[in-house]
């Protein structure tokens, strides 16, 4: 074996053991009717699990819930993040402090964030509800129709700083000349933002949305810590459904098929966005 391949071999072996084996094993599980409680009756069922998913309402509903969560959370994070990044770029004093302070939510583990908001927004004990009560107002943060958006808001609270970080780095690396040219050309702030800032920043925007989108699609901790998929299935995201199917109901074959469908969707999104990015970069 050539020296370069021998040098690569340990990493390849590690990759195969840590990533390859679980991937292959879970794919094999998705082609069986494997249940932890009936391991003796496991048999190969081909694509039956995938076919069953097509008529599984819970699965499609969970995908919709996840998509709604993702679009709401990432959309808000993008808008707020871009606004904050543009404001921070112009900041002249206490820049370092502001930036570190703004990033702090990112360093809290999501499960702790979930628990924190569960108590903050609790209808009986939560300080926010007590405040609303004093104003003779009431709002059910975790009720039907509101719970998912509350979870999205929590995600916005925790991950907007990430968006700020990415976009601020992007904004600060933009060339100065086109902006100066626009000033001389007489462009208004809005025209400059729309015609120059956004197009020049598009590469960073795509990466930031992609990273946050993929992360939002994995949402599990907030659901687990706060709503457990409820009320009803209002907040039953795809990851929580997979967790329930595989770990609570022991149907690992079905859960693996779900996971693979999600993987294909994610890969499709990533490929489309990256192709667009490469096309943009070549222009």
């Amino acid at each position: 074996m050539a020296f370069r391949y021998r040098m690569l071999a340990p990493l390849v072996a590690l990759f195969v053991a840590v990533v390859g084996y679980p991937m292959v094993y879970s794919f094999w599980l998705s082609l069986t009717n494997y249940r932890i409680t009936r391991t003796g009756q496991t048999k190969f069922v081909g694509l039956a699990q995938y076919q069953a998913l097509l008529s599984n309402d819970s699965f499609w509903s969970a995908l919709m819930v996840t998509a709604t969560f993702m679009v709401t959370a990432v959309g808000l994070e993008l808008v707020i993040g871009l606004g904050l990044a543009m404001a921070l770029r112009r900041q002249k004093r206490v820049r370092d402090f502001t930036r570190s302070f703004l990033l702090s939510p990112m360093f809290v583990t999501p499960i702790a964030v979930g628990l924190m908001f569960r108590f903050l927004l609790n209808p009986q004990l939560g300080p926010l509800n007590l405040l609303l009560e004093k104003l003779h107002l009431s709002y059910d943060y975790f009720g039907p129709g509101t719970a998912l958006f509350t979870l999205a808001f929590i995600d916005v609270w925790q991950w907007t700083p990430f968006m700020v970080l990415m976009l601020l780095a992007g904004l600060e690396s933009l060339p100065r000349a086109p902006f100066e040219a626009a000033r001389v050309d007489g462009a208004s702030a809005w025209l400059t933002f729309r015609s120059i800032t956004i197009p020049l920043l598009s590469g960073v925007l795509v990466v930031a949305v992609l990273l946050r989108g993929l992360d939002a699609m994995r949402v599990f901790e907030y659901v687990y810590a706060i709503t457990r998929g409820g009320p009803g299935t209002d907040t039953q995201t795809i990851q929580y459904l997979i967790y329930q199917t595989g770990i609570q109901f022991f149907r690992l074959g079905q859960a693996s098929a779900m996971a693979y469908v999600v993987l294909i969707i994610v890969l499709a999104i990533v490929i489309v966005l990256f192709r667009r990015m490469v096309k943009e970069a070549r222009r």
């Binding site: 000349a177 086109p178 100066e180 040219a181 015609s195 120059i196 197009p199």
Partner: peptide, 8 residues
């Protein structure tokens, strides 16, 4: 450096 708008 001309400062043209590269995307236009």
């Amino acid at each position: 450096n001309y400062a043209l708008y590269g995307h236009l």
